[in-house]
């Protein structure tokens, strides 16, 4: 069944269509919420609320304006932003800092990547990014949205999104350069 058919069924109150949509989109929605919020409990609440809104406002979705995944991410994004504005920046979960233990690579550059403190510092930098830069980075990098779709989700222009993305990357690269420099300094000492 296509997204349109599923959503039409949801509009008619078909709960099995709703369940199919949940199965299809739960992972990407919960992962996005987690990347923005950074803790499991709030992520679960926001994910539940997102699908509740999908059920209530199913008739408002317009297939010609946005894909279903884009629309759902937009709902999630707005809920996350509301949450962060209401509760401040609560991004405190150790698992956010953790990296995959089995992360191994053969490239010589990746020796640096396995340096956990380096990664931890970068993750800290990601957490400290302004909310719009972090969202832009997460949508384009992890959720594989195009710039146009990401801009639609964040309700900003494509130019503003590109600018946010560039600024986020520059901040992180700068942080990496500082970390590298301090590392070199440490070894020289």
């Amino acid at each position: 069944m296509t997204d349109e058919e599923l959503m039409l069924a949801v509009c008619d109150g078909d709960q099995s269509a709703y369940q199919v949509i949940v199965h299809q989109h739960l992972n990407s929605i919960s992962h996005y919420a987690f990347r923005v919020l950074g803790n499991q409990k709030d992520t679960e609440d926001i994910t539940q609320e997102t699908f509740l809104r999908l059920w209530i406002n199913a008739a408002k979705w317009q297939s010609e304006k946005a894909k279903l995944s884009t629309w759902l991410h937009r709902i999630t994004h707005n809920l996350c932003i509301d949450y962060l504005r209401k509760h401040g920046r609560i991004v405190t979960q150790e698992s956010f800092d953790e990296t995959k233990d089995d992360h191994k690579s053969n490239e010589c550059d990746n020796e640096e990547i396995t340096d956990k403190s380096n990664i931890k510092k970068l993750n800290e930098q990601i957490r400290n990014l302004p909310e719009n830069q972090r969202s832009a980075l997460m949508l384009c990098h992890y959720q594989n949205f195009s710039n146009k779709e990401a801009a639609h989700i964040m309700n900003i222009s494509i130019k503003a999104l590109e600018s946010a993305l560039a600024r986020a990357k520059r901040t992180l690269r700068k942080a990496m350069a500082i970390t590298d420099a301090s590392k070199i300094g440490d070894t020289e000492d």
Binding site: R35, F96, K100, H103, N123
Partner: peptide, 8 residues
């Protein structure tokens, strides 16, 4: 680094 972030 971005790829290495783990989701619970």
């Amino acid at each position: 680094v971005l790829k290495s972030q783990q989701i619970p």
